[in-house]
Amino acid sequence: MAQGYFITGTDTGVGKTTVSCALLRAFAAQGKKVVGMKPVVAGSENGRWHDVEQLIAASSISAAREHINPYAFDPPVSPHIAAKQAGIEIDLTVIQRAYQALSSQADIVIVEGAGGFLVPLSAQQTGADLARALNLPVILVVGMRLGCLNHALLTAQAIRAAGLTLAGWVANCVHPQMQVLEENIATLEQRLEGLLLGVVPFNHEIIAKRKTGLLDIIRLR
């Protein structure tokens, strides 16, 4: 059975896909068979879901799309609303079976959540329930901007309350001119129990050139 990690963020748009792809490439560079999974995605452009496409491109093996992405919705809204508009309900057992299928093919499965950790998936369930159903250690992507300290610490608290392990966290520089960036990172290093796996720069050209050197996966608990 493969090792898996659940990637969540302090909010939507904080770079979960960027970090997920960096993790896939880092593990692939170690000779691992890797595959990315996006259980639920909302928001398409011309019939394409870019998060899913990027995860597929960063994977080293081919897998069935229905396993990589069991639920895809066109409107860029919360998954529970998108599912209701589509007349369906997101079923965590469907996602569990898809994950098990991917696990039988790969050494590493990187599962990217939707939005933040507590984003609603149905009337009763959230992203936390999905992470708990898969029983995976969590990697937290912190979008480095004003307010990130509170968001990161609250999310870490929610991860622990769900009975899950915070395996590590990544500082993603989403704001090009964030003040006292280093001080904010140092504060989170001190207060978060999980290890800092790396700092992703704002410059996307640097990200493209350093496909495997952004994150220190050796530090994963």
Rank of each mutant, 00 (worst) to 15 (best):
A63V: 02
A63Q: 05
R65G: 06
E66N: 14
I68F: 07
N69Q: 07
P70R: 05
Y71G: 08
A72K: 01
F73C: 01
D74N: 10
D74P: 00
P75T: 11
P75N: 11
P75A: 11
V77S: 09
H80Q: 11
H80M: 11
I81T: 14
I81N: 06
I81R: 11
I81C: 09
A82C: 08
A83I: 10
A83R: 02
K84T: 14
A86I: 12
G87A: 12
G87Q: 11
I88D: 11
I88S: 12
E89M: 13
E89P: 06
I90E: 00
D91V: 14
L92S: 11
L92D: 15
V94Y: 02
V94Q: 14
Q96W: 07
R97I: 08
A98E: 10
A98R: 06
Y99Q: 05
Y99R: 04
Q100D: 15
Q100L: 14
A101S: 13
L102M: 09
S103R: 10
A106L: 04
A106I: 04
D107R: 07
D107G: 09
V109N: 07
I110T: 06
V111Y: 03
G113Y: 00
A114K: 03
G115R: 07
G116F: 01
G116D: 02
F117D: 00
L118M: 14
L121Q: 03
S122M: 03
S122F: 02
A123S: 14
A123G: 12
T126P: 00
T126C: 03
G127S: 05
A128I: 00
A128Q: 01
L130G: 01
L130E: 00
A131D: 00
R132W: 00
R132H: 10
A133F: 06
L134H: 07
N135D: 15
L136Y: 02
L136T: 06
P137F: 04
V138H: 00
L140G: 04
L140H: 02
L140P: 03
V141S: 07
V142Y: 01
V142T: 09
M144L: 15
R145W: 05
L146Y: 13
G147V: 14
C148I: 13
L149V: 15
L149A: 06
H151E: 09
L153R: 02
L153A: 03
L154P: 07
L154V: 15
L154F: 09
T155Q: 04
A156I: 01
A156C: 04
A156Y: 00
Q157M: 12
R160F: 03
A162D: 08
A162L: 09
G163T: 11
G163L: 10
L164N: 07
T165S: 13
T165P: 04
L166G: 08
A167K: 02
W169I: 12
N172M: 08
N172D: 07
V174K: 12
P176L: 08
